[in-house]
């Protein structure tokens, strides 16, 4: 009976099941798309979406993945703003997933899910809201143009930083902002993803 303590450590008294929870403060889901893996987060089960962040995809190693969040780092970042009551909630994202998939298939040009920029700073909010208003599907803008629209014409670099911190990737189309020369510069999802999104939007017309 020398293995008694080992048996206590390793065996199960009964079938065990994971706990369930009522609607959490923040629910999230991971969604794999044609341009990368996204972590989606929203308030409650049907409140506004507060995050759509590219995650590192260990499986594919696509793009410049080094700067990408993991599920854990992304959630930790969200928790700093929202508090720690964050739970996985796959079923709460069916509609968001459908809209994203439909957009990525070229069948939809905008999103109906409510968005909230609580993870952005005040300046990032101004830039991202201006982006949403002024740069429609299929269009492109330069960082300088966006800076001018936000009444800070010399702030192209700050605009770039604000867009780089976009907490609502794809849903707020920071991929439509390119260098003054038209060159694709950085993108949270990697340049290949930015290229794919711009190509997708230019196909439809």
């Amino acid at each position: 009976m020398t293995d008694l303590t080992a048996r206590l450590r390793s065996t199960l008294p009964a079938a065990v099941v994971p706990p369930t929870f009522p609607t959490p403060e923040i629910g999230y889901a991971v969604h794999d798309t044609s341009v990368g893996r996204l972590l989606l987060a929203r308030r409650g089960d049907d409140g506004p979406v507060i995050a759509s962040l590219y995650l590192h995809e260990a499986a594919t190693g696509q793009g410049a993945a080094d700067g990408h969040d993991t599920e854990e780092t992304a959630l930790t970042r969200i928790a700093r703003t929202t508090g720690p009551r964050i739970l996985r909630r796959a079923a709460a994202f069916d509609k968001v997933r459908r809209e994203l998939d439909s957009y990525l298939a070229g069948a939809r040009h905008d999103f109906t899910v409510p968005l909230e920029l609580s993870l952005a700073t005040a300046y990032q909010r101004v830039v991202l809201q201006t982006l949403g208003r002024r740069v429609p599907y299929g269009a492109r803008a330069s960082y300088g143009e966006l800076a001018a629209w936000t009444d800070r014409p010399k702030a192209a670099r700050a605009v770039g930083t604000a867009l780089g911190a976009n907490p609502l990737c794809i849903l707020l189309p920071c991929h439509r902002v390119v260098g003054a020369s038209g060159a694709l510069t950085g993108y949270a999802g990697g340049l290949a993803a930015k290229q794919a999104l711009l190509a997708l939007e230019s196909r439809a017309s």
């Binding site: 199960l12 008294p13 009964a14 065990v16 099941v17 994971p18 706990p19 959490p24 999230y28 854990e72 959630l75 930790t76 969200i78 928790a79 700093r80 720690p84 009551r85 964050i86 739970l87 996985r88």
Partner: peptide, 24 residues
């Protein structure tokens, strides 16, 4: 000091909690 997202606790410890509950 910030608390980790609650889901990370669930993932890391739900098995132990279930085992202790089953034992007690």
């Amino acid at each position: 000091m910030t608390l980790p997202p609650f889901q990370l606790l669930v993932d890391a410890h739900w098995h132990d909690v279930a085992r202790l509950a089953a034992a007690l």
